[in-house]
Write a protein that binds this DNA or RNA. Structure first.
Length: 299
DNA sequence: GTAACTATAGTGCCAGCGTG
DNA sequence: CACGCTGGCACTATAGTTAC
């Protein structure tokens, strides 16, 4: 097609726990197109210096990965403060009214969540005339090929939008509505910005799943660990959890220092009350009683 | 359907280091 | 020197995936 417009912004998307556990999340890292190369280069160097080939939240179980994770957090916060980068993480709870339905179709639901994320980030948080190129992880559950086909096929896309809350295919007019010009899945091992999306998506889920454990751990490792609470605590967290707690703690501290308005306590997990802030943890709330997750076998 | 394989998470052990 | 802490590493259990 000759109508390709000049891409002005780029997004990297990754999902975490899309089909297991209580909390699921979607991470989207966005930046102006002229920043991509330098950001990737810096992150790449950061990984290299730490002797990590590819960062994955799931693989965060040792000190080496912890150091990288903390560096990546600090880096992201730094750049976010200059307005050259946003991190938006959408988290949903499968036990809320929307998701507590029989035979929930998690894959179809994931598509809806992508829609919400796109709608709220691509248009509302960056200039309205931005032209986007998206890079999801290559190994994602989403069938991006189909989505891309919808990009090309305008007529097919029209029916779709109103069916969003009534089921049906994920055929939103991505191009018109969001200015998405291109969707190109990439391998995450070569693209640190995808790994950054993975980090924050993982961190968001973790902060909720393990919030209580995290609080215990904080008390236990505080300057004066009082023997009052948790007399003989049953099991101490696994090694990986401990490493992740340390990352979470550091990230929380950095955010507080930079006044990014990222809360941890209020919602028992990472949450940004003011979504315009550049590091935005967003907890999906059912929009209305009829806002239900799609079910399998229903069209 | 089963069996084998792969990726991942959890656990324990060991070596190096700093400190009292 | 002994002790505790930490990072590195390897082994095991398990779940999910693929092949037959």
């Amino acid at each position: 097609m000759s109508r390709t417009l000049r891409v002005s912004h780029v997004g990297f998307a990754d999902e975490s726990h899309w089909n297991t556990g209580r909390f699921r999340s979607l991470g989207l890292v966005t930046t102006p197109v002229d920043c991509v190369d330098s950001l990737e280069a810096k992150l790449h160097r950061l990984l290299e210096e730490s002797g990590v080939r590819e960062f994955k939240w799931k693989k965060l179980n040792g000190a080496k990965e912890r150091f990288v994770a903390i560096k990546m957090c600090e880096f992201a916060v730094d750049v976010a403060c200059t307005g050259k980068l946003r991190v938006d993480v959408l988290v949903w709870d499968i036990q809320d009214s929307r998701h507590d339905v029989q035979g929930r179709d998690d894959l179809a639901n994931l598509q809806r969540m992508y829609y919400h994320l796109f709608r709220n980030v691509l248009r509302a948080r960056w200039p309205n005339d931005a032209i986007w190129r998206l890079h999801p992880d290559e190994h994602t559950a989403m069938n991006w090929k189909t989505v891309r086909d919808c990009l090309e096929n305008v007529s097919m896309a029209v029916q779709v939008e109103r069916s969003l809350f009534t089921g049906g295919q994920f055929r939103i007019r991505l191009r018109q509505e969001f200015g998405i010009e291109e969707i190109q899945p990439l391998p995450s091992d070569q693209h640190p910005l995808l790994q950054l999306a993975d980090l924050f998506a993982g961190l968001a889920v973790f902060s909720r799943d393990k919030y209580k454990e995290y609080q215990k751990w904080l008390r236990a490792s505080s300057p004066q660990p009082s023997m009052l609470d948790e007399p003989h605590d049953s099991i101490n967290p696994s090694r990986a959890s401990q490493e992740r707690f340390r990352v979470l703690k550091k990230f929380d501290e950095v955010c507080k220092k930079r006044r990014l308005g990222v809360s941890l306590k209020t919602k028992q997990g990472l949450w940004t009350p003011e979504p315009r802030n550049p590091i935005n943890f967003w907890l999906y709330e059912p929009q209305h009683p009829e806002d239900k997750a799609p079910q399998k076998g229903k069209k």
